[in-house]
Design a binder for these strands. Structure first.
Length: 424
DNA sequence: CACCGTCAAGTCGCA
DNA sequence: TGCGACTTGACGGTG
């Protein structure tokens, strides 16, 4: 079964934020506090992923602030050994595959040796983190090749030489990806094949930075490039990984979209569904698109999965379109069906609408209904004041939603606590 | 509590 | 040689 994953952060999941600090505030005490907090968040994300059947996930490089910098001298692996072990066990129990992806500033092929040293330190940090979680060699570290420096062949040679010097704990996890600027998929495949490094095909990078015409007799299809990348993967690497993203309309070429559009995704999926691959989504709404795509291709076809989604999106839909709200209610009536495509199509279309004030007030009233019997008189007046101010066009709906979120937390309404109404 | 400049990283194009 | 743009989310100070 192909797994769909997302990168680093979640949207609309409480207790999953990652914190850091500036260099000058990075005392040992501060760092310990931040790491503890971030490990709590990671654990919450892992639990969320298990609950939502998301079995592919990228761990943020910011988990340990200044993890590869002399600023952080803490023996964090030892200090938090039991925390790492616990999360690692949960990853195993949930059959989760995790990966990491050092940023664009980790450059292994720089002509500046100090830059390379820092890149190696950063790779060591990433490998140490995955070791602490006791993940296997199918748990990958994704890296770009780096800069060109006016001489691509020389730059590639430098990458290969520096790769050879890496510790095997890094080598057995390192994989390489085509980027949107310098190294196209044919470049990366050449390096991968020569050095025995698995290659990740990124569809959007490929679109922005396709192979040069003179290097290929005829341009290959995405599916063919994916097959060529697949040949670089060995059994110990686990399933071949792909990066998938969509262009955000109107933004700089290569910008990741806000959400994954269903139709383009399903078209992509039809080309890869028979291949033994895992797909990492790179998209702003993170887990939301991962759950959506998983549900779209799920063979389990449990309507309960859609009902759970509906519980999170419903007030967002209600404030945009009562008609769409009713349409989805009707769609989910038949408990023997699994109308995932229609469900998400209506969601997708409706979410593009700007809420009208009347509908937004209606949705807010629905939410307020959860509290109206328990709320104090003062809270009732506070709510009324905000909703009137919104109705008269004096403010946006943001203060209303903030207020309702505060109430949700105070009165612990679990149904609302998971609602995306407050976060999208 | 909203707002916005700053941070942190390395490369590259342009004065 | 040096500077700004590029990127990203959160910090951290101001109003």
């Amino acid at each position: 079964m192909m797994e769909i994953g997302y990168a680093c952060l979640t949207v609309g999941v409480q207790g999953t934020d990652f914190r850091t600090c500036t260099r000058k505030n990075a005392s040992n005490e501060k760092l310990v506090e931040l790491i503890e907090h971030n490990l709590d968040s990671l654990e919450t994300i892992v639990d969320y992923n298990i609950k939502n059947k998301i079995r592919l996930f990228r761990i943020t490089s910011d988990l340990i602030p200044f993890g590869s910098s002399p600023v952080n001298q803490l023996p964090w692996q030892d200090l938090f050994m039991s925390r790492f072990a616990r999360i690692g066990e949960r990853l195993k129990a949930g059959n989760l595959r995790v990966s990491m992806h050092p940023g664009q500033y980790t450059v292994l092929n720089s002509p500046d040796v100090t830059v390379v040293e820092r890149a190696v330190d950063d790779l060591i940090y990433h490998a140490n983190l995955l070791d602490a979680l006791e993940t296997g060699t199918e748990s990958k570290i994704v890296l770009h090749i780096g800069g060109v420096y006016g001489d691509k062949e020389q730059a590639i040679r430098r990458f290969c030489e520096n790769y050879k010097k890496l510790d095997s704990s890094i080598k057995q996890r390192l994989i390489i990806e085509n980027d949107d600027r310098n190294y196209s998929i044919d470049d990366v495949l050449r390096i991968g094949n020569e050095m025995g490094i698995p290659v990740v095909f990124d569809n959007l990078h490929h679109r922005v930075n396709p192979t040069k015409a003179e290097t290929e007799e005829k341009e290959l299809t995405e599916s063919e490039w994916i097959d060529l990348a697949g040949e670089t993967w060995r059994p110990q690497d686990g399933r071949q990984k792909l990066h998938y993203s969509q262009q955000e309309p109107g933004k700089r070429s290569g910008s990741h979209s806000e959400t994954i559009r269903i139709d383009a995704f399903l078209e992509y999926y039809s080309a890869i569904k028979e291949k033994p691959v895992d797909v990492m989504l790179e998209v702003k709404d993170k887990n939301l698109s991962a759950v959506k795509c998983r549900n779209l291709i799920s063979e389990e076809r449990e309507i309960g999965r859609l009902e759970l989604e509906w519980s999170r999106y419903k007030y967002l839909i209600l404030e945009r379109s009562p008609a769409a709200y009713e349409a989805i209610r009707a769609l989910l009536k038949d408990k023997s069906a699994y109308p995932a495509k229609n469900f998400y199509r209506i969601l997708e279309e409706t979410m593009q609408i700007q809420p009208e004030a009347g509908h937004a007030v209606n949705a807010a009233q629905h939410v307020w209904g959860y509290f109206k019997d328990q709320a104090t008189e003062q809270e009732r007046l506070g709510y009324l004041k905000l909703i009137d101010s919104y109705r008269e066009g004096k403010t946006s709906s943001a203060p209303v939603k903030r207020y309702l979120w505060k109430m949700t937390e105070k009165y612990r309404q679990p149904y609302l606590q998971d609602s995306l109404y407050f976060f999208l």
